[in-house]
Amino acid sequence: MAKPHDIDLMEHADGERDHADRLRDPAAREKVEAIGELSELVRGHLELSADAVPPARFEQIWDAIDKSIASTPAKSAGVWSRIAGWFERHRGHVITGVVSAGAVAALALVLRGPSSETTTTSSGHGSPTVLPVAYRPTEIESLETPGADSTVFNLQDEDGPATVIWVTPEDTVEGI
């Protein structure tokens, strides 16, 4: 039988893996027992140390941890990162066309607005009748944004659709 490695014995002592078959070796068995004793000693020492800390001190420690967790995202989430994050999340699947810097006017991007729009007519009582109306989306025939990237998307709400072209300077993207 191959001599067991220390890492296997440590995993066994920690309960991460079962290497009981390797404990036939007396030296290995001694190592595992030694690890167990050492673990007990360390655990006991830490428990005693924890008991020595007054409860009020624990409250302070957890308050400090909670504050650091709560404040960390707010500090790091600047306007740039929020905007960039939004673009990154939507770049692939929303109505988006990304044009490289100085791209030649060759982009013919059809923005996917609503495939149909509806108008509602009502006679004043009963259910309204919904009539579909053909909607022709905005077509970007060409778009040049020298030295910058652009993102094209569509915003839709009750006030109607809007085509948005957002320009992001190349040199600032890398700094996000």
């Binding site: 909607y135 060409s142 778009l143 072209i165 300077p169």
Partner: peptide
Amino acid sequence: IDNKQSVNTGEWLVFGQN
């Protein structure tokens, strides 16, 4: 921005930059 587009009347076109 240098842009050519075909758009429906009354729709908003919004151009923005940081």
